[in-house]
């Protein structure tokens, strides 16, 4: 079997990714996660002294706490299978990546296993987040100094 025939056969056999269906699933999953987040946000605003601006931080932390429980009991995997990007794009997905890595590598010890592997998947997000924040802030500050834009 030559290469062309093989690739043809491969294309026939592999199931086509149903893009439309995946999009709907991602939309619904992500939407539900954000709606839960909105509920938690209102909880913090109603019972504690947080405004709409400041309630975001405890909300994110609580969402990651929920992600920890779901990951620990092995339920997040199922959500991820259904939701695709819908479960990966919210911070719960980021939390899941870090938490599952921490649980999985516990047998290698806390320092080398947990501490070292926690950032294996999520580290790139932090690296690019911090670096892009630096670049954006630098560019904007220079532009402001030159008088091109205001704050």
């Amino acid at each position: 079997m030559d290469r062309q025939a093989y690739s043809q056969l491969e294309q026939q056999i592999t199931p086509k990714t149903p893009i439309a269906l995946n999009l709907v699933k991602a939309f619904v999953t992500g939407g539900i996660i954000c709606t839960i987040g909105q509920g938690i946000m209102y909880f913090y605003m109603y019972f504690f002294d947080f405004t709409e601006r400041t309630a975001g931080n405890p909300t994110v932390a609580t969402m990651i706490f929920i992600a920890m429980l779901l990951t620990g009991f092995g339920k997040y995997k199922r959500i991820a299978q259904f939701g695709g990007a819908g479960s990966a794009v919210p911070v719960t997905g980021f939390g899941n990546a870090m938490i599952s890595a921490a649980i999985e590598h516990r047998t290698e010890g806390y320092v080398l296993g947990v501490g070292g592997n926690m950032f294996k998947l999520a580290g790139s997000v932090i690296v690019f987040g911090v670096f892009s924040a630096f670049v954006v802030a630098l560019i904007k500050t220079i532009l402001v100094k030159l008088g091109v834009v205001g704050w």
Binding site: A26, F27, G30, G31, I33, G83, A85
Partner: peptide
């Protein structure tokens, strides 16, 4: 939130 996930 759903639209962000659709982009993803």
């Amino acid at each position: 939130g759903g639209l962000f996930c659709v982009i993803g």
